[in-house]
Amino acid sequence: MIQQQENEKTFVGRERQPQALADAWIKANPDHGSSRFVITGEINGAAYDANSRVKGLKGGG
Rank of each mutant, 00 (worst) to 15 (best):
M1C: 06
M1N: 06
I2S: 15
I2V: 15
Q3V: 13
Q3F: 13
Q4K: 03
Q4V: 09
Q5E: 13
E6G: 10
E6S: 11
E6M: 14
N7M: 07
N7I: 04
E8G: 05
E8P: 02
E8R: 08
K9L: 11
K9H: 09
K9S: 06
K9W: 05
K9E: 00
T10S: 06
T10Q: 07
T10P: 00
T10C: 05
F11C: 01
F11H: 03
F11S: 02
V12R: 04
V12C: 00
V12Q: 05
V12Y: 02
V12G: 00
R14Y: 14
E15H: 06
E15Q: 09
R16L: 09
R16K: 08
R16C: 04
R16Q: 09
Q17D: 09
Q17A: 09
P18H: 01
Q19G: 00
Q19F: 01
Q19L: 02
Q19N: 00
A20E: 09
A20C: 02
A22L: 00
A22K: 01
D23A: 15
A24T: 05
A24E: 01
W25N: 02
W25T: 06
W25R: 05
W25D: 01
I26V: 15
I26E: 13
K27V: 13
K27C: 09
K27S: 13
K27N: 13
A28Q: 07
A28E: 13
A28N: 06
N29Y: 15
N29E: 13
N29S: 14
P30I: 14
P30Y: 08
P30V: 15
D31I: 08
D31R: 07
H32Q: 12
H32W: 11
H32C: 12
H32M: 10
H32T: 10
H32I: 14
G33P: 02
G33A: 11
G33D: 11
S34Q: 12
S34F: 12
S35P: 00
S35H: 04
S35A: 12
S35Q: 04
S35I: 07
F37L: 14
F37D: 15
F37G: 15
V38R: 09
V38S: 09
V38Q: 08
I39Q: 05
I39M: 09
I39Y: 08
T40W: 01
T40R: 00
G41A: 09
G41Q: 06
E42A: 08
E42L: 05
I43K: 00
I43Q: 01
N44A: 05
G45Q: 10
G45I: 09
G45S: 14
A46N: 04
A47T: 03
A47D: 01
A47E: 02
A47F: 12
A47L: 10
A47K: 04
A47P: 01
Y48F: 15
Y48M: 14
Y48I: 15
D49Y: 06
A50T: 07
A50C: 04
A50E: 06
A50W: 04
N51S: 12
N51K: 03
S52K: 12
S52C: 12
R53I: 00
R53E: 07
V54D: 07
V54L: 03
V54A: 13
V54K: 01
K55Y: 03
K55E: 03
K55T: 10
G56D: 13
L57E: 02
K58G: 11
K58C: 07
G59E: 08
G60F: 07
G60Y: 04
G60A: 08
G61I: 06
G61S: 10
